[in-house]
């Protein structure tokens, strides 16, 4: 589904990603862990198409297409979804209008008719239950006045509405209390299938109790320095990241 080969990316001349290699197949869950500043969020943003980064080397293939050549909206329509670490507030854009536009763009891409108002509201009701998001929130502007937890839930709600093939969750657990974490994780798990894949970017192991990964990768200094099964997460939790920083891998 996704193949990353020797990916190098920099911001204002500073190289952040220094040769990432990663293969993600349908049905898999990959966790990317690492200390702060290792390049986790950069990787997530580069995959979603944020323009602040310069790709200096390497290639990324998604479903047979050159991902790096695609505009962010085309990546989204092709089934890639990024759950933002810091979801942006957009006063004046009502959630409903925004979601309707997004869902219908995805439908158009698939050659489907836009949803009627009734169909759309029905879909929204179903998906809202999945992430237990307050109905009041969807009547507001995008993320405006939402708490940190509500913003994260809202990201998973959007994911549920768009049903991506490849979801990248960028520190979705940060700032979530344990109850909200469970709700978010349950939402993610409910959306899993043999045809889609998830990349979970996180600093801590806790989320991985709920979203169990098939692979855990440790990203450090712009490179994946270690890959193993889910047991690696426990090891990291126990020992911290210092043994990796010290090159003791």
């Amino acid at each position: 589904m996704l193949t990353i080969k020797n990916l190098h990316a920099s911001v204002e001349g500073n190289e952040i990603l220094k040769g990432i290699n990663l293969v993600v197949k349908p049905g898999e869950v990959h966790a990317i862990m690492g200390p702060n500043g290792s390049g986790k969020s950069t990787l997530a943003n580069v995959l979603a198409g944020k323009e602040d980064y310069e790709i200096t080397d390497g290639e990324v293939t998604y479903e047979g297409q050159d991902l790096l050549e695609m505009a962010p909206e085309d990546r989204s329509r092709a089934g890639l979804f990024l759950s933002f670490q810091y979801p942006v507030e957009i006063p004046g854009v009502p959630m409903v209008n925004f979601l309707k536009a997004a869902v219908n763009e995805h439908r158009k891409f698939k050659g489907l008719e836009p949803l009627t108002a009734g169909e759309f509201l029905k879909l929204m009701r179903e998906k809202k239950e999945l992430v237990q998001i307050d109905t009041q929130l969807t009547n507001r502007s995008v993320n405006e006045g939402f708490s940190g937890g509500e913003k994260k839930k809202n990201e998973i709600f959007q994911m549920a509405m768009l049903e991506p093939k490849l979801a990248i969750l960028d520190e979705t657990d940060s700032g979530l209390d344990i109850d909200a974490l469970r709700i978010v994780a349950n939402g993610v798990n409910a959306l899993r299938s043999k045809d889609n894949a998830t990349i979970v970017v996180t600093h801590y192991q806790r989320l991985l109790d709920y979203i169990v990964p098939d692979f855990v990768h440790v990203l450090y200094n712009g490179k994946i320095v270690k890959t193993a099964g889910k047991e690696l997460a426990f090891e990291l939790e126990e020992k911290g990241y210092d043994w990796i920083k010290n090159g003791d891998v």
């Binding site: 979603a48 198409g49 944020k50 323009e51 505009a71 962010p72 909206e73 990546r75 989204s76 329509r77 979804f81 990024l82 933002f84 979801p87 942006v88 957009i90 006063p91 004046g92 854009v93 209008n97 925004f98 536009a101 997004a102 763009e105 995805h106 891409f109 502007s141 995008v142 959007q158 768009l162």
Partner: peptide, 22 residues
């Protein structure tokens, strides 16, 4: 905000329009 809207599948022109309306 523009990137956020585009990352959800809304084309650049429409996303800009949404933000100007907002």
């Amino acid at each position: 905000a523009l990137f956020f809207l585009r990352s959800r599948g809304i084309g650049e022109a429409d996303a800009r329009l949404m933000l100007m309306n907002a």
